[in-house]
Design a protein around this nucleic acid. Structure first.
Length: 230
DNA sequence: CACGACCCCTGGATGC
DNA sequence: TGCATCCAGGGGTCGT
């Protein structure tokens, strides 16, 4: 029996009634589905399939194999081995907590945002969208952000994530929601995927580059970089 | 310790 | 039409 389903950042945990825990990470292209065993198509990318008592089934599909499954004997073990290393969840981060995670780091602020040990749950798309809305250049040194900028970033993160969740996520290539429908948030992207196009705020040409090994798009006018950070 | 670079993998997009 | 090639991404691991 699954007694509880928990989440931290991008990871899920199914807690069994004997205390054991199955932790799932869907990676980029993973999905889970459940239903009657005979109705649940076991496609070629299904790597995990549980047959439940009563004829039901639960499975995880992961075409690009960036996801993972880990089994622990207890929630304490999950915490010790995996979740204890995660930073504060992106949906409950506060300016104070984010400030604490950024102030000691001389990395690019985007690299820090993508570091799950600083904030858990922010991926490439939402990092770019949040930095743009907060008017913070992705290559600003993490420790150089002042309180006001961190506050803007926290507010932007909250709004971006809330809107994305509301829209069912961003469907690029093959991602779909649990229902099988495509998400709609990709239609609301203001910078991601728009390199070379006009900034929706000021009309400047959006720049695209590589930050922290990830494609990054920003507005050079709305998200200025100080000369010493260039 | 902190951080950057690289790699895993697949399918969609693009080029020929 | 069909093939080869490029590219995207999260995060573990290794190197600096």
């Amino acid at each position: 029996m699954v007694e509880a389903v928990k989440r931290r950042g991008k990871q899920l945990a199914l807690v069994g009634d004997h205390g054991s825990v199955v932790c799932l990470h869907l990676g980029m292209s993973g999905s889970v589905s459940a239903g009657a065993e005979r109705d649940l198509v076991c496609g070629k990318h299904v790597h995990l399939r549980w047959l439940l008592s009563g004829g039901g089934a639960f499975q995880m599909s992961d075409p690009r194999r960036f996801g993972g499954v880990w089994v622990f004997g207890s929630e304490a073990e999950l915490e010790a081995v995996r979740w204890g290393r995660l930073g504060v969840d992106a949906l409950s981060v506060t300016p104070g907590k984010l400030m604490a995670g950024l102030r000691s780091s001389r990395r690019a602020v985007k690299a820090a945002l993508l570091d799950q040990g600083v904030v858990a749950g922010v991926g490439n798309i939402y990092a770019d969208e949040s930095l743009y809305r907060a008017r913070v250049h992705p290559e600003r040194l993490a420790c150089s952000l002042n309180r006001r900028e961190v506050e803007r970033l926290v507010r932007a993160l909250g709004r971006v994530l809330a809107e994305a969740i509301d829209a069912g996520g961003s469907s690029l290539r093959d991602y779909v929601m649990l229902s099988g429908d495509a998400g709609r948030f990709q239609l609301a992207h203001r910078v991601y995927g728009r390199g070379g196009e006009a900034c929706l705020r000021c009309g400047s040409v959006l720049e695209q580059g590589l930050v922290a090994q990830r494609t990054t798009v920003w507005c050079p006018a709305c998200q200025p970089l100080s000369p010493e950070e260039r």
